[in-house]
Design a protein around this nucleic acid. Structure first.
Lengths: 262, 262
DNA sequence: TTTTTGCAGATTGTAGACAATCCACAAAGT
DNA sequence: ACTTTGTGGATTGTCTACAATCTGCAAAAA
């Protein structure tokens, strides 16, 4: 029996419900920034846009909510989540120990083939730095870390790591990759690869941890700088917050105390 | 303004949709074992049992799926997930580094009040050991680690840690808390508390990590022992697998190749 | 006997309808 | 002016109905 499995088109229909497709599409739109943090997602509008009914859209909402990409307020709607700096910091700390585990495991298990692949990525990143191509560098950097995690061989770790990365991408202030700090990050990558290749688990773990924490520090500094910049130029207020958190909710909440007195 | 917030009953209605209630109830039933791993969850049946329509049940399914507590097969239904030993091991490794982070942070930040609370929990566990009360010990142990994580002050870490614990509880073989290994675990707890109180971040981290890994090793050994036991007594086959993975699926999959030939 | 084929019942996937709630704005009262 | 109170339109929450798919069994074929 040559059980090749069903042909691709059939496999697609077998595994993909509308809910899954909607979920994937919404996730893509959110991660690409097409749907910005704080933006309200209206069931009917999205259902119409995607050509489905509200049911699958609602189910996709529940998945995205559980995944931390949107936030649901009862009777008010679903909003693309906005990750505050506090939470971003927490995620960085968490990612750091996960990366530490990755470093330890890789130093023990990595193959020469894998080493070549990783080295190629680091090379490509250095080329991107020289070319001052921040976008490409950012993509390669994501790929680099994602591959390292994947190679560590812990699927649960990989899944959670990716979830955290997705959430981090909702931390708006991260997007502007101020190009001048790229070379620093690139050097750290060489260090990581070297200690992994040397098979020194503890050293590789520390290198990964340190790298993640540096990344965290850079992000915080970047955020502070950005905040002060925004405070300086009050003349041109930041409009991106529009529709992000309808403060009328607070009004309603406090006024509802009236029910108690009545 | 004494903004006390809305009275409890109103707050309940404000925040709890049927979907949320169904999700919480299903989660409770799953974690309590009322719904066993592998068991099929039928929309209509559950909807009827809970007195709601299928919509909220389906939405709750999507949440539980994303949370890793159930598994969805298109056009076939939703099943309580069964965590295999491989995945349990992965979760243990992940939890170990998270606990390591907890130890480091706590050694830096813990207050005397928190130390008292933790000490009380360890005391209670030792009493449970002396009384050979495995159930209570198990509950206290969960509480102990949960409080430690919570005290570390990283909400994301806490959330993911709890998610992992929930998934681990679906690892069937874990349930039988073979009482004889309790004292060992209890001693390790004292060690952890001591190094945290000493303010030695690295030592506390290592202690937590080691403790988690010991727990992993004990679980693996326990599983091996259980497997060999099951293999010995083939006369009384294990019925708990019934309805867990309808193998007729394989039949259908291979026969679907026929479509290709046709 | 063994395998294949074709229903019949049950279950899931999706759509649409109705009820409950919210929001913005206008009108009335203080 | 400022707060309170209605009211209309829009959106979400929930339910019910219908279509698509699956499972199991029985009848037919080999």
């Amino acid at each position: 029996m040559a059980a090749l499995g069903p042909p691709p088109t059939i496999a697609l229909l077998q595994s993909n419900s509308l809910t899954n497709l909607v979920q994937a599409e919404l996730e893509r739109m959110i991660l690409s920034g097409e749907l910005a943090p704080g933006e309200k997602l209206t069931e009917m509008a999205l259902a119409g846009k995607l050509g489905v009914s509200r049911g699958p859209v609602r189910e996709a909402f529940r998945m995205l909510d559980e995944a931390g990409l949107v936030r649901t307020e009862k009777n008010r709607g679903v909003f693309v989540r906005n990750i505050p700096i506090d939470e971003a910091v927490e995620i960085f700390d968490l990612r750091a120990v996960m990366d530490e585990l990755v470093g330890r495991r890789l130093a023990e298990h990595i193959t020469t083939v894998q080493q070549k692949e990783i080295n190629a990525l680091v090379d490509a990143m250095e080329r991107a730095v020289k070319a001052k191509d921040a976008d490409n560098y950012h993509l390669l950097n994501l790929k680099f870390h994602d591959r390292l995690v994947e190679m560590a061989g812990n699927r649960k770790l990989t899944a959670i790591y990716r979830k955290l990365i997705k959430e981090l991408s909702l931390f708006r202030r991260l997007n502007l990759a101020d190009g001048w700090l790229l070379p620093i990050s690139a050097n750290e990558h060489r260090e990581i690869v070297k200690s992994i290749a040397a098979g020194d688990a503890e050293k590789a773990g520390r290198a990964m941890y340190a790298h993640a924490m540096e990344s965290k520090e850079r992000t915080i500094e970047n955020d502070l700088r950005r905040q002060s910049r925004a405070a300086t130029s009050k003349a041109a207020p930041d409009n991106t917050l529009r529709g992000m958190m309808p403060e009328s909710r607070l009004r309603r909440a406090s006024s509802s105390i009236g029910l108690r007195a009545a």
